[in-house]
Nucleic acid binder design. Structure first.
Lengths: 215, 215
DNA sequence: GTTTTTGGATAGTGCTACTATCCATAACGA
DNA sequence: TCGTTATGGATAGTAGCACTATCCAAAAAC
């Protein structure tokens, strides 16, 4: 197919497709002449994936590129590819002043990881996010929330077990990689949306129409 | 305190504080003369909250403003304030072409909400996100993942129950509002980070060193 | 009494994610 | 066959966001 059809079937404007080609998000089509290229179904699939990552999961274009590189690195172990994706989608956090609040948060995270028997590198990007978030929660007077970390961690393990169990049912290792990468990123969007719905429902029941200041 | 001290204690540059004042994120200090204002502890707390929302939860400045307005709307019921926050932190999704894939996803979401007995408005922002995400997952050939929606929903209810239970232990309704708003937004960051850690751990165990192409 | 800081206003910056324009060539439709 | 439309590739421009920088007269600090 030519670029116009790719655009029509994906809903992405032609100049945007050209931009993705320039940025290396989308592999070039096969040139049939100096100014004519042919695109395949895989280009359409790739384009849909790019749009899902950008629009739904809000991944920046530069990170999408890294994610897709991990996606395509068939020579690497799946674990390493997942590591690449994690690094790509975790924003760089500049570490706050290293006071005792942060040290306590770091200790809490270390203990959590140990208690749950998680095999993670101590400099994993999510560790920093976790420490900074707990530090912020405590600084905001929300120690209570930070104290429920273990319960959160347990609930979170359900997602992961579920996902990885689903994945191992696939036979083709490339299919597995695809599922894990997509599941990691779009799964987060899914979970966040479900969480908001559950919250709205509970809040409607507990805190809504019954409130004095309402209506 | 004056602006220099506010800057020093919060770690936010003076011009940035002025910018937040202009944008209405931070209430003005009390003017003691035409070009002199006094800031209180509450300004420092507010500034820390703003930074946590922007840096950790990646909430855009314009949305932070709406969140803080909900935060300060003491006249509204907590349920309505939560609704404001949800609308502020959910990006506008332009609806994809209304084909049968999307219709099926919409039906799936409707059934899920009904099955779980969730009391949510049918035009809640998270509903659209959910439908679009499921549509995208199916378009990407990840029907399996989309099929686990119920299990995801169940795990997600744990968070929410936990949070709301924790909240009702507070007596002061303003404290409750504060906890819910902060918990809603920073909780998501927390959950996402924990999920990445759990995933890294499981993937290290199942898919890591054992792989052929890995060292 | 001089140096520093302040609130307030305005303008400028760097980055991101596109859009727009141009051009020579190729494909299409009458 | 021939005028119109589409294409690949290059370059330049744009809109929005989140700050930064600069300036000023007046106040504070030393």
């Amino acid at each position: 197919m030519r670029i116009a059809e790719l655009s029509r079937r994906s809903g992405v404007a032609v100049p945007t497709i050209k931009y993705y080609l320039r940025e290396g998000l989308l592999p070039p089509g096969e040139l049939t002449s100096p100014n004519q290229a042919r695109y395949e179904e895989r280009h359409l699939r790739r384009l849909r994936l790019i749009r899902a990552l950008i629009e739904l999961a809000q991944v920046p274009v530069a990170s999408v590129k890294v994610v897709l590189e991990a996606f395509d690195s068939e020579a690497l172990s799946l674990h390493k590819r997942i590591g690449m994706v994690h690094r790509a989608i975790t924003p760089r956090r500049q570490v706050t002043a290293d006071d005792d609040v942060r040290a306590a948060a770091a200790a809490q995270v270390r203990e959590l990881v140990e208690r749950r028997g998680w095999a993670v590198e101590p400099d994993a990007p999510a560790i920093t996010t976790l420490i900074e978030t707990i530090t912020a929660l405590r600084a905001l007077g929300q120690d209570r929330l930070a104290g429920y970390l273990d319960a959160y961690a347990e609930a979170v393990e359900r997602f992961t077990d579920l996902e990885l169990a689903a994945v191992t049912s696939h036979a083709d290792p490339d299919q597995i990689a695809e599922s894990v990468v997509i599941g990691t990123i779009l799964g987060e969007t899914l979970i966040a949306a479900l969480r908001l719905l559950a919250q709205e429902s509970i809040s409607a029941r507990l805190l809504g129409p019954a409130s004095a200041s309402d209506r």
